[in-house]
Design a protein around this nucleic acid. Structure first.
Lengths: 212, 212
DNA sequence: CCTCGTTAGCGTGCTCTGTACGCTTATTCC
DNA sequence: GGAATAAGCGTACAGAGCACGCTAACGAGG
């Protein structure tokens, strides 16, 4: 027996996903600074206030955008791979999904990502870790450490990658005051972000391996 | 021979540090949302537009706030300690400095921290790594990996710590769909943030050790 | 087919933001 | 003391988020 909805005099013409997609389009086109309720409404050919039928807040809309971006990550575990390889692939998928929309990075930080896809992702990572023999609190720490590395990487990448202009500036620092930094910057310059990410991740994985 | 400044008809009554301190006071009291040019001006008992004699932008003011917060980290290297211990202490100092003003965390992310104290901090970390036998590109990767861990940690902590309400919510997830996650959340619950941070860091350090 | 109830959609307007512009006033130098 | 210069600020404007209440489109019952 279905308890039908009492009344539906006029069906909603939009879904939250569609609104989020519109907002994401605005962001991708005009940057995060270009995101405004008016801009999103215009993108949907609606009046500004119509958005508020679907969204309580600008805050909530931003959350939906993050959800949308993160919903692109494949959370299935690659079969027939070592636990470390599984984790690597899962972690790289998150990086790629966020990397596809660099301008939303600040939003992913501010908005608690309790989105369903991140939960599924965590579950998959935990499964891989379990394959690797991790259990109990140690497994919890392992997951969190990986999460921290991902977040830090994304943040740092879209804030000045190793091969970016920031590093170039560091290479020109006064060598008297910052000898190691200047030298390190020169060494780091030719390392592309992908490689930096992979090598850092493999350090973390080695640490996990060595810790149990 | 000093080339004197041509004219100084009226001395500045404020320093950028003092403005940053006022802004930080506003943030600490009213949260980041309470930060506005008017609020900072009021905090200094000035007219709003007077601020613009010292600051070109709200953007720049935010940068100064970050600088101020980060200027609290002691960048001297603890003597007579293993390289790993040195790194641990240096890393924890950054965490503590930022942790003293949780509301500025989003600012530290948005604003490129090319602040002098972070440069000195990096130099110190590099020195410790050099003690540990790291050189060349490998040392660069090591520094970046540590930085990523710090950033990710700070971010994650002020976005839902392991022992926070977020984890409690996870513990109550449908066990059918998220068996490992629910179980992990229960295991993680009693772990305080400090311990989580330390154990994660030691994983990274172990990884660094194992990588060379 | 018509009417009624409900809700999607939106126009108006308020408050608050950052900041451009230009005036007033305090201060230092000769 | 007078002139020059910059500090300090009052006013004003564009654009933001969103509260409020009206209008109109639609589904259901007669």
């Amino acid at each position: 027996m279905t308890y039908a909805v009492k009344e539906m005099p006029r069906p909603k013409s939009l879904s939250t996903t569609r609104i989020a997609a519109a907002a994401l389009a605005v962001i991708d086109r005009d940057g995060l600074a270009g995101l405004s309720m008016r801009a999103v409404a215009a993108e949907l050919s609606m009046g500004t206030m119509s958005l508020y039928r679907y969204v309580t807040d600008r805050e909530q809309l931003e959350g939906f955008v993050v959800d949308l971006v993160l919903s692109d990550v494949d959370t299935t575990r690659p079969p027939r791979a070592s636990w470390a390889r599984q984790v690597t692939i899962l972690v790289e998928r998150v990086r790629d999904a966020v990397g596809a929309h660099p301008a939303v990075v600040p939003l992913t930080m501010t908005h608690r990502h309790t989105t369903a896809s991140l939960l599924r992702w965590s579950e998959a990572v935990l499964a891989a870790l379990t394959d690797g023999g991790f259990t109990g609190p140690h497994r919890a720490i392992a997951l969190r450490t990986l999460l921290k590395y991902v977040i830090g990487s994304i943040q740092l990448e879209h804030l000045g990658a190793l091969s970016g202009p920031g590093t170039t500036a560091m290479a020109n620092l006064p060598p008297a005051e910052f000898p190691l930094l200047a030298q390190t910057a020169r060494h780091a310059q030719p390392i592309p972000p992908d490689e930096e990410f992979r090598r850092g991740l493999s350090i973390v994985l080695r640490g996990l391996h060595a810790s149990q």
